[in-house]
Simulated assay, not measured.
Amino acid sequence: MLLHRYCPRFLEMSYERERLIAELAVQRATILTKRVFHEKVKGEVAKDDKSPVTKGDFGAQALIIQSLVKNFPEDQIVAEEESSSLRQDESLTVEIWELVKNIELEDQPSDQLLGGPLPSQEAMLDIIDQGKSLGGPRGRHWALDPIDGTKGFLRGGQYAVCLALIEDGEVKVGAIGCPNLPVDDLASLTADIGVQQTGAGQGVLISAVKGFGATTRPLSNAGLSPGKPIAMRLVTDISQGIFCEGVEAGHSNQGDNAAVAERLGITSPSIRLDSQAKYCSIARGAGDIYLRLPVGKDYEEKIWDHAAGDLIVQEAGGQVTDIYGKPLDFTIGRTLASNKGVVAASKPIHDQVIAAVQAVLKL
């Protein structure tokens, strides 16, 4: 644990308190999700969009929102989940309640910063529902995805716990817990990275503050582990770039992605992994390019799926835009309604990638 991070003078620096709380809250929620995975029954239900939701989603959201409400009671929260399905399933609510009330960091100063146990199941449900803010261009909004990449979580692959502070439409702080990424920043991304990655020596917490760079540290049960700065890899020959994309064909047009890679001269197979672990992978030099190309004219990306990763990549020396080269616009509300798709790459090659994307999509 870095004791100086609890020094009041240190916390007065720009957004350092927000970063500290975000890191600790994401780490504590990540511990819960790992416990849920190792249970035999994960308590899966179905949302209206048919994607799976687990005890991990609800429990992680409750823990993180509790931490935000304690430390920043005036801030708004834009979160993915809400408790209506839980209120109709008492047994599942009880299971989640047992998980939430028993999650504590071994480091007491850290745990105390995040708030004590919630007093009741009803309080837990009410906390989950404090994530209904509509976002917008003014004020402070925390964008939260308690488990980004739920299908990756269920298959034992890549998923992430993601939290970002957006102030007046600009992302200021981002924290992402990736329990199944290797601790080694430069470990090669292999074809099986999307499945069966739950062994020992895994798990990183990556964060960034606007203008202050990005940091990685191993996940821990006892406060924050020592961190170190990260930077994107310097790519001199784009044909040697490492290409990342989503596992699910419904999230990104994989055919167009392949055509873009071919146009750039990239012959190695793309690396497919779920969640904002893709942003984290390219930010720390394990990959170079992340594409999420539109799969439908009317689809709008959700801000909680991109805010933290956007900032982390930028602070690591990268650039993130939509397919038209426009920065992602977090001022509109809960979605990126003015953007289409996502293109993330290091700054020296970003224009080349955008040109290839636009040629393939005939923009």
Rank of each mutant, 00 (worst) to 15 (best):
S225Y: 09
I289D: 05
A214Y: 14
V195C: 05
D192A: 00
K172F: 01
D274C: 04
G250Y: 08
I282F: 02
G203C: 12
L291H: 07
I242R: 14
G213P: 14
L181C: 08
K228P: 02
T216K: 13
D192Y: 06
A187L: 09
S225P: 09
I230C: 13
G211T: 13
G285F: 09
P229E: 12
G227S: 15
Q202Y: 03
V260N: 09
G241W: 11
Q276S: 14
S239L: 04
G285D: 10
G199M: 01
R272P: 01
P182C: 08
S268M: 03
D288M: 10
V247G: 02
G194I: 06
V183T: 13
D274R: 06
Y279G: 05
S268L: 10
A222C: 01
S252E: 11
G223D: 08
L189R: 05
D185K: 14
C244H: 05
T198D: 12
I282V: 12
S270P: 14
A164T: 02
I289H: 09
D288V: 03
G199A: 02
I289G: 01
N180Y: 05
S252C: 06
A283L: 12
L163P: 13
D256I: 00
L273V: 07
K228R: 15
I193P: 07
I242L: 07
S270G: 14
E167I: 11
A249W: 05
C162D: 12
L234H: 14
L219C: 06
V235E: 04
H251P: 00
G177H: 07
L219H: 09
I166H: 07
G241V: 08
T198E: 01
R272F: 03
N221M: 06
A259W: 10
G199N: 05
P179T: 13
F243Q: 01
T198K: 11
Q197E: 12
M232H: 11
E248Q: 12
A208C: 07
K210G: 05
A214K: 07
V183Y: 03
L219D: 02
G227A: 09
A191W: 08
S275D: 06
E248N: 15
A261F: 00
S188T: 10
L163V: 12
L224S: 12
G250E: 12
R284H: 11
L186M: 06
S275E: 13
K278P: 00
A249C: 03
